[in-house]
């Protein structure tokens, strides 16, 4: 009997700003671990979680590690579903241009870089969330 690999749909919901708490960093680490086990991973940035992807983070002054560059590894880990809540950006006066770009390389198309980021409304997000097997909150 052959063993069938079980692939579940995991969603990680990031709702906190980076550095104020450890949640953002812990979430990123767990996401990369789950992705390494070939699971179906979705990553959501909503509420203050959208600040995690801000460009130009400089943590020299607060003496903490700047982990924002690590998000660019998501594509290499085959995490291709990143959802950003449009309303959360708007109520913070932010737009996608304030956030870092996240891409993956499509080897079927001569390693063309494609964006991982999907800007979604709350109602779209609600539907995507509803289709998950496991939702983890950070």
């Amino acid at each position: 009997m052959s063993e069938q690999a079980i692939i579940k749909k995991f969603m990680y919901v990031n709702r906190k700003s980076p550095y104020g708490t450890i949640y953002a960093l812990e979430s990123l680490e767990v996401v990369l671990i789950t992705a390494a086990f070939d699971q179906d991973v979705s990553l959501v940035f909503t509420d203050d979680g959208v600040y995690q992807l801000m460009k130009n983070q400089n943590t020299e002054g607060i003496g903490m590690k700047n982990f924002s560059a690590t998000y660019s590894a998501l594509g290499d880990y085959e995490v291709k579903k990143v959802y950003i809540d449009k309303e959360s950006l708007e109520e913070r006066g932010l737009s996608l241009s304030d956030l870092q770009e996240l891409v993956w390389e499509d080897e079927d198309e001569d390693y063309a870089e494609k964006s991982l980021i999907n800007l979604v409304s709350r109602s779209e997000l609600s539907e995507i969330m509803n289709n998950q097997d496991v939702v983890l909150s950070f």
Partner: peptide, 23 residues
């Protein structure tokens, strides 16, 4: 506090006028 703004990538140019940024 300036180091906390910088850490979060929040531009000093976008701070509300009248608020003083300090170290």
């Amino acid at each position: 506090l300036k180091p906390d703004l910088e850490a979060r990538g929040l531009s000093l140019d976008n701070v509300i006028e009248g608020v003083k940024v300090v170290g």
